[in-house]
Computed example of a mutant assay.
Amino acid sequence: MERTFDKIVDNFFEGIAPQIIIGNVILGTILFLIGLIIMVKKSPNKKLKTMGLIFLGVGAVSIINGAIQMGIFS
């Protein structure tokens, strides 16, 4: 029973894996751009700058991760 369930799940995710990777890169780009906009914006609020740095970091990691999975760096 468990093997049947595993096969169904594997087949489902195997079919949509490319869309997930592309979505990961797109979402990472959006986060990176939002973080960049927040960092460039002149705001004395330190929490906003921290949030911008977090968005920049998560976006960059997401873009690099997606690029590696697509095989761009190999």
Rank of each mutant, 00 (worst) to 15 (best):
M1C: 09
M1Y: 11
M1R: 11
M1D: 10
M1W: 10
E2T: 08
E2N: 14
R3D: 14
R3C: 09
R3F: 13
T4G: 10
F5L: 10
F5K: 08
F5I: 08
F5D: 03
D6S: 11
K7L: 14
I8G: 08
I8F: 14
V9W: 07
V9T: 07
D10H: 13
D10N: 14
D10V: 10
N11W: 05
N11G: 06
F12P: 01
F12L: 04
F13C: 03
F13V: 00
F13P: 01
F13W: 05
G15S: 14
G15P: 07
I16C: 04
I16P: 00
A17V: 09
A17N: 13
P18L: 13
P18A: 13
Q19W: 11
Q19T: 08
Q19K: 12
Q19R: 11
I20N: 11
I21D: 00
I22S: 14
G23W: 09
G23P: 06
G23N: 07
G23I: 06
N24A: 02
N24G: 01
V25D: 01
V25L: 03
V25I: 08
I26L: 15
I26H: 10
L27Y: 11
L27H: 09
G28L: 05
G28V: 03
T29N: 02
T29A: 07
L31A: 13
L31D: 09
F32E: 03
F32C: 05
I34Q: 10
I34D: 09
I34F: 15
G35H: 06
G35W: 07
G35D: 05
G35C: 06
G35P: 04
G35R: 07
L36F: 15
L36R: 09
L36S: 13
I37C: 12
I37A: 15
I38A: 08
M39Q: 12
M39T: 07
M39V: 05
K41R: 14
K41Q: 10
K42F: 03
K42T: 01
K42H: 01
K42E: 06
K42Y: 01
S43G: 03
P44W: 10
P44N: 15
N45S: 13
K46A: 12
K47L: 04
K47F: 04
L48F: 04
K49S: 07
T50Q: 14
M51K: 13
M51C: 11
G52D: 07
G52Y: 09
G52N: 08
L53A: 10
L53R: 12
I54G: 02
F55T: 02
F55H: 07
L56M: 09
G57N: 05
G57D: 02
V58E: 10
G59Y: 01
G59T: 02
A60D: 00
A60W: 00
A60L: 02
S62W: 00
S62V: 00
S62A: 04
I63F: 11
I63K: 11
I63T: 12
I63V: 15
I64Y: 00
I64F: 03
N65T: 05
N65Q: 06
G66E: 00
G66R: 01
A67G: 15
A67H: 09
A67V: 10
I68V: 15
I68N: 11
Q69W: 04
Q69S: 06
Q69F: 05
M70C: 05
M70A: 08
M70G: 06
M70E: 07
M70L: 15
G71Y: 04
I72Y: 04
I72N: 00
I72V: 05
F73D: 02
F73L: 11
S74E: 01
S74M: 00
S74D: 01
